[in-house]
Design a protein around this nucleic acid. Structure first.
Length: 854
RNA sequence: GCCGAGGUGGCGGAAUGGUAUACGCGCACGACUCAAAAUCGUGUGGGGAAACCCUUGAGGGUUCGACUCCCUCCCUCGGCACCA
């Protein structure tokens, strides 16, 4: 090719087409080639709006670079892509533009796949999937049925989160700071009967396994905190003169503070329960309970100042038998523990606040400075460890030691509790997989059903799956407690699988996070099972799992990333899913996960409301995908994220042009330098000149840097290394002919191979210009040799009292005495040392020498 | 409040305890041009004529030597938030 302009638009399209036709990125799923399978997975996008935004491209490109290097290293890389197209996200977009979600999905789909092609990733497009495809959600429903059959799915009435704007319930994980994860509306509380998955049964394993999987630390910590394991004891406080119970049970992680428990606090919900059983409290108490419950229902945020009310009930502290009052306050939560607490104001901040407000006694029982003559009450709660005081026979004992002893003495039961709650699966929306369950009134009345505690309920027989989502006109959520499918009798009218009588289908759909909890299992099996009768091919699954690298956003730490682990562990336990060997605990799907950083725009998070969302299409059109890819990756470390600023994209534009121009100076014919390509074995025929050795050294250093940087996801420094060597080659270009055995072509080929993961189209174009017929992306990754990188001489740093004073070129491996003698002859060193004596000389071989004079 | 990540030139960022500021952007000057853009070259942390001095949020410490390790504090971002 001559020096005409590089038409990236045309060239990028050309190669994308060629790659697809040649199936360049399709692995052999049945018989992985080369070094074996490498499943390079990235979180699939949910098509939420006008198209993918640049943040998606950032994530995909970063994952793709890694996959491309692995492919060149000889692995059979599988890098699938699909669409998480079911769910509120897509549905809301359809509602906004006045389209039907089912029709809109098809329109969006084409657009998304076009965009995904344009970025030039090595996607195995033949295995793509969409969660709203009945061939897919048939198996989403099947998973629900398996959960039901094995007691991991159940239906229960309880207080749940309700988003008044999205008009549906939400799982706890989808409530962020009291607001809906999707729309930011304050979440209310409703009592509803809903479907749940028993994720709490896996709390312990989900927590323990975190120690054994290689995940980004911040994500592991987020999961750990979310699961929230607490070890403590449940302790019973006897009460008298109260007809509805003769004791109140509390859970505490600090039984050692029991002697300091000066009152009991009961949640409004528990109080209400008592009232429903017939308890008749005073007017004031009843009013408080109703107010508090109403505040919770409205989704009111945490109160600045604590509120509460005293009852006429008294309990006995089981440790010291003192009579303590029972209060009601909404600072006690109903959903955790027993709904009642023992209040130890001296050693719990919240109890302290409450005691201050209502003038309740504060008794110190853990002394921070022991022994001390007295242990006065502090002006804030002391929550640390110490020695017991005011605790009878336990006085003087370390609090940690006293913990279980006191619990034992009062008959407390040691217990572990988790803050994790069961996963609420139901959604009162249209655009999702219908929950494949049927309710029969007659069976319910007769106490019949598939599960003993849930009479009347039956799973849709597996052979009848999928329960297809019907096309209905009235798909808008109306805000009742029911999905729009509840107004579609043609959908919900059915026959009971138990008795054959008239029955009604469940009309709620399942949470989108159920769709995305198993998509990665389906990918390698999409072709094999498209016509088949199984969700995945067990042979392929064993071969390709667990996933070798999973990449995605940290915002899913306690959403998708938690659910997906749970579903995999459950399916594994049910013997429905089996992976091949792995270092990770059995059933863990992702032994290695890396969270990419967030791409922001001029210091602010990109969001539609701020109007600062960057559309990648414009940049691809203007600069080409290769430039956009490299620009995004050069911004900052991939795991850190970066700030998208137009200005600095010019640097990459120049980089690409310089590569092109150097490429044009490379003769297309001539011997490929196998010596360099194969790993730099030097031909023994001639003694290389200094220039050649320097070149070889620089090249091998670059190979090492780029190889290691990609492995660590440090793409910014990898690109920097490529820029450095490009500059070097440009300076040397006039000596091209003198490179001898290191032919210009060979050097340049190695360079563009290193470039290939970052700029796949440009590298492919240059590769073919050099006369190759195959794809550069299927050629071996360059290797390097440490011995060639080593310098003969190096600048020895000379310090005086730790301050840099001079650098002296020194042969490698020189011993301390020689180095000292050499350096002492240097004029700068002489003047820096002056007349004072040297007390000590620190010598670090091949690095520095430090004269200490003080 | 708790947990996590971080604070380095005008900006994005780079540095196995060993030459702080690689690479890029921007800027300045020069070359090319009638001119501009583009391109190429040179320079570019601060102070100083220079020798040299100062500089990685602040302050202490460990060390021959600290952006890096330890302690105290400040600030920014992210997560959780009455979980007993």
């Amino acid at each position: 090719m001559s020096s005409e302009r590089y038409d990236f638009g045309e060239i990028e399209k050309k190669w994308q087409k060629v790659w697809q036709e040649n199936r360049t990125y399709e692995p052999d799923l049945d018989n992985p080639k080369g070094k074996g399978p490498f499943y390079n997975l990235m979180m699939f996008p949910y098509p939420s709006a006008e198209g993918l935004h640049v943040g998606n491209m950032y994530a995909f490109t970063g994952a793709d670079i890694y996959g491309r290097k692995k492919r060149m290293e000889g692995y059979d890389v599988f890098e699938p892509i699909g669409l998480d197209g079911f769910g509120i996200h897509s549905e809301n977009y359809a509602l906004k533009i006045g389209a039907h979600p089912m029709e809109q999905a098809k329109i969006s789909e084409a657009r998304f796949y076009d965009q995904l092609s344009a970025i030039g990733n090595g996607f195995a497009r033949e295995e793509r999937l969409e969660t709203y495809d009945p061939a897919y959600y048939r198996w989403t429903q099947w998973i629900f049925v398996q959960m039901w059959k094995h007691g991991l799915a159940y239906r229960k009435k309880q207080a749940v989160n309700w988003c008044p704007s999205c008009k549906t319930v939400l799982a706890d994980e989808q409530v962020i700071g009291g607001k809906c994860e999707r729309c930011g509306t304050a979440v209310e509380v409703k009592e509803l009967e809903q479907w749940f998955f028993r994720i709490t049964k896996y709390a312990e394993r989900l927590l323990d396994n975190l120690e054994k999987i290689d995940w980004s630390e911040r994500v592991k910590i987020a999961q750990k905190n979310w699961i929230g394991k607490s070890e403590g004891a449940s302790i019973k406080f006897p009460i008298s003169d109260f007809q509805f119970s003769d004791e109140i049970e509390v859970f505490t992680t600090r039984p050692d503070t029991l002697f300091g428990a000066t009152f009991i606090v009961v949640s409004p919900e528990l109080a209400k329960e008592w009232m429903e059983k017939g308890w008749q409290p005073s007017q004031t108490v009843a009013e408080y309970v109703d107010e508090a419950l109403a505040r919770r229902a409205e989704g009111e945020e945490k109160q600045k100042e604590k509120t509460g009310v005293a009852t006429e009930i008294f309990a006995a502290n089981p440790a010291n038998k003192e009579k303590i009052p029972v209060w009601i306050s909404d600072y006690v939560l109903a959903g955790y523990g027993t709904g009642a607490i023992m209040a130890v104001p001296a050693h719990d901040k919240r109890d302290y606040e409450f005691a201050q407000k209502f003038n309740l006694p504060v008794v110190m029982v853990v002394c921070p400075h022991y022994p001390a003559p007295t242990c006065p009450v502090l002006d804030e709660a002391y929550e640390g460890e110490g020695h017991l005081v005011g605790s009878g026979v336990f006085d003087g004992m370390k609090s940690e030691e006293a913990k279980w002893k006191i619990a034992e003495v009062v008959g407390g039961k040691r217990e572990t509790r988790f803050r994790l709650r069961d996963w609420l699966i139901s959604r009162q929306r249209y655009w999702g997989a219908p929950i494949p369950m049927i309710f029969c009134e007659a069976c319910a009345a007769a106490g019949k059903g598939e599960q003993s505690e849930m009479s009347g309920w039956y799973a849709v027989p597996e052979e009848e799956l999928p329960v297809k989502l019907p096309y209905i006109e009235k798909f808008r959520p109306e805000g009742g407690d029911e999905s729009p499918l509840g107004s579609a009798p043609e959908f919900y009218k059915t026959k009971c699988p138990g008795c054959g009588g008239d029955a009604r289908r469940e009309t709620d759909v399942s949470d989108t996070f159920l769709d995305s909890a198993w998509y990665y299992i389906r990918y390698p099996s999409t072709r094999a099972t498209r016509l088949g009768q199984a969700p995945w091919d067990p042979v392929v699954t064993k071969q390709w799992f667990p996933v070798h690298l999973y990449t995605g956003g940290a915002e899913h730490a306690v959403l998708h990333l938690l659910y997906v682990r749970f579903v995999a562990l459950a399916l594994h336990d049910l013997k429905l899913l089996a992976f091949g060997s792995s270092d990770a605990p059995g059933g863990e799907p992702f032994p290695k996960f890396r969270a990419h950083g967030l791409l922001i725009k001029e210091g602010a998070k990109m969001s539609k409301s701020k109007g600062n969302v960057v559309n990648p299409d414009e940049y691809i059109k203007k600069y080409g995908a290769d430039v956009l890819r490299m620009y995004l990756m050069f911004l900052a470390p991939f795991e850190q994220g970066g700030d998208f600023r137009d200005a600095s994209i010019q640097g990459i534009v120049r980089f690409v042009r310089r590569i092109r121009e150097l490429g044009l100076k490379i003769p297309p014919s001539g011997i490929t330098d196998r010596l360099v390509s194969v790993g730099g074995m030097r031909a023994g025929i001639e003694t290389p000149t200094l220039e050649k050795r320097n070149l070889e050294k620089t090249l091998h250093k670059t190979i090492r840097a780029v190889t290691n940087d990609i492995e660590n996801l440090h793409y910014n420094t990898a690109i920097s290394a490529l820029m450095v060597i490009l500059g070097y080659l440009e300076r040397e270009k006039d000596n091209l002919g003198a490179w001898g055995v290191f032919s210009p072509k060979g050097i340049f080929e190695t360079f563009i191979k290193l470039l290939a993961p970052f700029a796949p189209h440009l590298a492919e174009e240059l590769w073919h210009e050099l006369g190759h017929e195959d794809s550069i992306h299927r050629t071996p990754w360059p290797s390097y040799e440490e011995s060639l990188i080593a310098e003969d001489t190096f600048p020895l740093v000379v310090q005086v009292d730790g301050k840099h004073r001079a650098t002296v070129m020194t042969p490698r491996g020189i011993v301390k005495e020689q180095a000292e003698a050499l350096v002492r002859a240097d004029a700068k060193v002489i003047s820096a040392l002056g007349v004072g004596g040297v007390k000590k000389v620190v010598y670090v071989e091949d690095r520095l020498i430090n004269f200490v004079t003080k």
